[in-house]
Design a protein around this nucleic acid. Structure first.
Length: 119
RNA sequence: GAGAGCAGACGAACAAUCGCGUAUAAGAAAACUUAUAUGAGGAAAGUCCGGACACCCAAGGGCAGAACGACGGAUAACGUCCGCCGAAGGCGACUUUAGGACCAGUGCCACAGAAAAGUAAACAACCUUAAUUUAAGGUUCAGGUGCAACGGUAGUGUAAAAGACUACAGGAGAUAUUGAGAAAUAUCUGCCGGGUAAACUCCGUUCGGGUGCAAGAUAUAAUAAAAGGUUAAGGUGACCCGCCGUCUUUUAAAAAAUCGCUAGAGCAUUAUGGUAACAUAAUGACCAGACAGAUGAUUGUUUAGAAACAGAAUCCGGCUUAUGACCUGCUCUCUUUU
RNA sequence: GCCUCUGUAGCUCAGCUGGAUAGAGCGCUUCCGUCCUAAGGAAGGCGUCGCACGUUCGAAUCGUGUCAGGGGUA
């Protein structure tokens, strides 16, 4: 789990990020980017993870996908591979139906691929 | 040894690195940092029942309504649990059981059949009399139909028949004994007119307003538009009476902190009472509490080749459903040996 | 958290209340028709009535449980 200051919490902020439709997608994951930072460089980037109930009914499966995505993003933030993330106010990771039963390496590789394609 | 029945336990372990929630302590103006401790179930699930708790409300009456249904107990309560009776199934250990009442009333029982419940024979058969192709009377034993035929089997009896009579088994009622009771056993009485209430219904018991922690409390902040209304809107949510008595409804937008929030009809061990469910007493420990929502990732070793079902959301008691592997105890049947 | 509805042929739906034949339209197959196709006509098959247990002589229908899907509300 990310520390609390990196989490995107507010309902209105999530809706605003969705409405921009600045997306990059894969078979497993779709990423929504928010507005670019111009003035507020001091604020940390807010990140959210979404796994819809339409994808799978059981909470254990959905939690597993969320945790895998979080883990891969934690490693990325730690090594600071992609500074592109720090240029946006908010980022939302949405899992797709094909992400079910996939292990850590596939999720991690798709996250890296999407972020590198954006930059 | 094989098969089966019942009950129970468990719900991968260890190490390393990185990382998250909560609490406490220290530091810091603050954001936060460091250290320590701790952090997912037997079903957390389904939401099928019962409660606690909270608020609205004033909590009254009537009539609808809902649930339950052998008997005795347990419990805060229950549609749950325990014991026991009857019935059904099994060679047996044992299992299952919505198990009150169709002598209050109404309805239904297709096709077939004489007839599906009405003091019933339109098929057919038996007997008697007249008569010989038939008619009248008596009868329903046997036949056939159907899930079910007006009690069953065997005899007596009769023109032919019939609980008309007798024996046996069954049902019902009465009496006696046993038992806390359901009920069981014995004797007697020809008493014996189908089934269906998971059909309406009747009887008995219970419930007796509503909404659910997004309940609600505290603090801060607080709008706009339209419609209706003291000639009674609205609330009490099947409905009626009765009661309360001033704002109410809709649409749009905005803001969201703290408490409730986890010490409990709870858990473990022991003792006593009870067949048991359970109750009482003593001792001990307490360490999830989030709010877009914390337990993860990688590597190595062991095991059965990385294991099943599955993620707390106010809290308890049950029920139901899902579930891999290994293990334990008691009992029954069959076979073999002694 | 609470409330509520629906599962029937490949698809869309009747039938259920009130128990005794599982049906309609579109689609599919074959034949007729036409020079060929379409329209039209004829015939045919297509179903564990979501699943399990029960009540009943008999269950798509009644009862209970369960599974799946949808909707409403805060």
């Amino acid at each position: 789990m990310l520390p609390k200051k990196f989490r995107l919490k507010k309902y209105s902020a999530i809706n605003a990020t969705y409405k921009l439709k600045n997306t990059v997608s894969d078979t497993n994951i779709c990423i929504y980017f928010g507005k670019e930072k111009i003035l507020q460089n001091q604020m940390p980037t807010k990140i959210a993870f979404v796994v819809s109930k339409k994808i799978h009914k059981r909470a254990v499966v959905r939690n597993r996908i969320k945790r895998l995505m979080r883990e891969s993003l934690r490693l990325i933030l730690k090594e600071n591979k992609f500074p592109i993330i720090n240029n946006y106010i908010s980022v939302i990771f949405v899992a797709k139906a094909s992400a079910i039963n996939s292990d850590f390496t596939t999720i991690n590789s798709s996250v890296i691929k999407l972020l590198s394609s954006k930059s």
